[in-house]
Amino acid sequence: MNDELAIDVRGMTKRFGNRTVVNHIDLQVHTGEICGFLGPNGSGKTTFIRMLCGLLRAEAGSGTVLGYDVITESDAIKLRAGYMTQKFSFYEDLSIFENLDFVARMYSIEDRREAVAESVERLGLGERKDQLAGELSGGWKQRLALAACMIHRPKLLLLDEPTAGVDPQARRDFWEQIHQLAGQGLTFLIATHYMDEAERCHRLAFILNGNLLAQGTVAEILEQTHLTTWSVSGSKLLELAEQLRGQPGTQQAVAFGNTLHVSGDDSDALERIIAPFRTEHYEWRRIDAGLEDVFIHLMERSKERESS
């Protein structure tokens, strides 16, 4: 990691009609960083990524991607960034090899043959290279898509929910690869809504309804929200959850397997609330808030603000 910014944009805004999909988002990602871009479905992640690589025109905003102006130099950005779409968008009626070759030609790569061969090899697609892309399973399609959007050796990869519908083993392999590539100096912006994936990122940005709610490292975000979380185990947890949810100061009471996580951003208030329930029926333990707790907390808080 170094101090150079691969992505440095401010005030990025996009409206569809009179609906603001992305609302003045600032984002800074250092070269070699893996930035997780989190948010529920329809929060504006895809729109934001598309603006970065010139697929959508931004209504407002400025800044640079890989040192090129995000508004006016999208052609230069396209040449140096790779974009992996959420839905598989390579040609299903072409084979793996043909798809890679097509992309390589599109970028007029000089040593095209080697680049394609190398890409097939590196991603372990060797035996399947003549298989039609349409016949591949989700995990293989995802590998192909990643290989294809890296064939022109981009410095920045914008991945839009790359592991949706991919099995755990393939996901793990995928993330191993991402970390290796980041080690070689590639920068990643990865949209996801899997919390375990978020924890594998160097930095996180959390977006909701087009607004950026939090940005920073995992530790920073946990720090920023001052969330206190208690884990309870015992019987009749459902009834307990019901009772706790009604109280102001309890933002969350969520079941996690055999335990209940109770969180709030005011630790004293929370302690007062749970005091009456600290009986022999329940076992209370204070734990570190997880990312999921934090994000659900951020979402709830944002909802409260909207309704108030």
Partner: peptide
């Protein structure tokens, strides 16, 4: 319709 346009547009063509 097949979504490949998005990919095509993200390439310098």
């Amino acid at each position: 319709e097949s979504g490949t346009m998005e990919n095509l547009l993200s390439m310098p063509v």
